[in-house]
Design a protein around this nucleic acid. Structure first.
Length: 430
RNA sequence: GGGGAGAUACUCAAGCGGCCAACGAGGACGGACUGUAACUCCGUUGACUAUGUCUUCGCAGGUUCGAAUCCUGCUCUCCCCA
């Protein structure tokens, strides 16, 4: 049995743990769980830390449990929130749970015959049949309001400048989450709950319930909330959240997100988001320090995480796309692509369709950029961009007098327009 | 209720009768540099049938050859006194 706490420590994933947790884990195989909010039909990379927590946990020989918060998701965790949350209806929740379940399968082994096979539970299943009366009599009796009020998540909402106050529903949240822990303790001998450091308060409500009602001992492990060195929020790019679902965030963009992390963050992230062992990471860091401009760390980080989430094949495509978009590729490289790869690469870039007859007669640049396609807001903007030498057709800079003809078509129907380095537009001729 | 200040482009902020599509700063975008980075430098930043034309300076009117600039009314914001 590998020492899980030690593993977390060198990976920088340990924020806090209850006294005795390490010994508890070394004795025998234990079950630990992490809760996931089914607020969307996909997880995003902000959820990746708790996921990795479970994944590392399983690799240390223990049994991970993923708890989908069907019930708690209906209430809304007040931790770190300043306003009342929107509640989700049951149909949406069920749908989201299914999607989340599928994504977790990439990280956790649910199917093995080992005792450490992961399991997935949904707290809605045991919460839905509990009556309010039952709950306040059997559970509520054991926790004082004074205890609940002392939690930061509650204090912040009641005392501070926050004028919105906090509903009874949200106040109850920690009890419901605490009950989950108690339930899993009784039904699955789960003795540990893990989560982000903001979950500490909620977790301890659970251990308290286990102590008072379950006559047992529960343990808590929290990991630091992940940050970025430049202060911006982790997991967000210009387009919003970076999702694990390929339909929401293409594997290419996903890979790019990791590739673009700063040196400092990459060193931190590679420990958290990959399964690479300490020696491998140490030597990668050393190598990277020698030749920082080659970005060894970022590339490896991107590779590991993308393969983990989307598979090797999608990763290869992301690399191919990256080379085309950022490398010194030429028009002939582009023309050598087959249609499917081309569309994959440019999945997600703005597209517009123009009639074949227009190209037949030669399509001038202003029309191609603005009038016919709305890639740019106005003809004036198109002229300006052309004057600034910002526009490329199929990777080659063009001037204002350029005219698109049949010669420029890729696969007889596509033209790649580009403004500056990063803005691509795909023109489809039909 | 009484008195005062203000409303200008994505944001902040000049302009106070013609030289104003409107100084400057930030942001954004582009170019050079670079590690698909940071820094730095340069350029662009209302629209159009483009050395010109049109529409913009809270809203609606008015004065004037001419208004972001002056006058009247309205709406909103801020401050002070009750």
């Amino acid at each position: 049995m590998k020492n899980f706490i030690e593993e977390l420590q060198w990976r920088g994933m340990l924020h806090d743990s209850m006294p005795g947790t390490e010994e508890h884990l070394l004795e025998e195989m234990r079950s630990a769980y992490v809760g996931f909010d089914p607020t969307a039909d996909s997880l995003h990379i902000g959820n990746l830390v708790p996921i990795m927590l479970l994944a590392h946990y399983q690799r240390c020989g223990h049994r991970p449990i993923a708890l989908v918060g069907g019930a708690t998701g209906m209430i809304g965790d007040p931790s770190g929130k300043s306003a009342e949350r929107n509640l989700l209806d049951e149909t949406t929740l069920r749908h989201n749970q299914e999607c989340v379940k599928a994504q977790l399968g990439h990280f956790l082994d649910f199917t093995s015959d080992e005792k450490s096979a992961a399991i997935l539970v949904n707290n809605y299943d045991w919460m839905k049949d509990i009556s309010f009366l039952e709950f306040i009599r059997d559970i509520g009796k054991h926790i004082t309001v004074n205890y609940m009020m002392a939690k930061d998540s509650v204090k912040n909402r009641i005392s501070s400048e926050s004028k919105d106050g906090m509903s009874f529903t949200e106040f109850t949240y920690q009890m419901v989450q605490g009950y989950d822990f108690l339930h899993l303790f009784r039904e699955n001998s789960t003795t540990i709950q893990m989560g982000g450091s903001d979950q500490w308060g909620n977790i301890t409500t659970g251990t308290e319930l286990i102590r008072r009602i379950g006559n047992g001992k529960g343990y808590a492990i929290t990991c630091p909330l992940i940050t970025k060195s430049d202060g911006s929020k982790f997991g967000k790019s210009e387009g919003g959240n970076v999702w694990l679902d390929a339909n929401r965030t293409s594997p290419y963009k996903f890979y790019q997100y990791w590739l673009n992390t700063s040196d400092e963050d990459a060193e931190k992230y590679i420990k958290i988001f990959t399964f690479l062992d300490k020696d491998t990471i140490d030597s990668l860091v050393a190598e990277h320090a020698e030749v920082p401009h080659t970005r060894i760390l970022q590339k490896r980080l991107g590779e590991e995480v993308t393969v983990l989430v989307h598979g090797r094949e999608e990763y290869e495509k992301a690399i191919k796309a990256s080379n085309i978009l950022f490398g010194k590729s030429t028009a002939s490289d582009l023309k050598s692509l087959d249609e499917k790869t081309l569309l994959d690469i440019f999945d997600g870039v703005p597209q517009a369709t123009v009639a074949a007859s227009l190209v037949e007669n030669g399509l001038d640049m202003i029309a191609a950029l603005a009038a016919e396609t709305n890639f740019l807001k106005s003809n004036g903007e198109a002229r300006r961009a052309l004057k600034e030498n910002a526009i490329s057709i199929n990777k080659e800079k063009v001037k204002e007098d350029f005219v698109i003809t049949k010669e420029d078509l890729i696969d007889k129907k596509y033209v790649l327009l580009q403004k500056g380095k990063k803005n691509y537009y795909l023109l489809i001729v039909a």
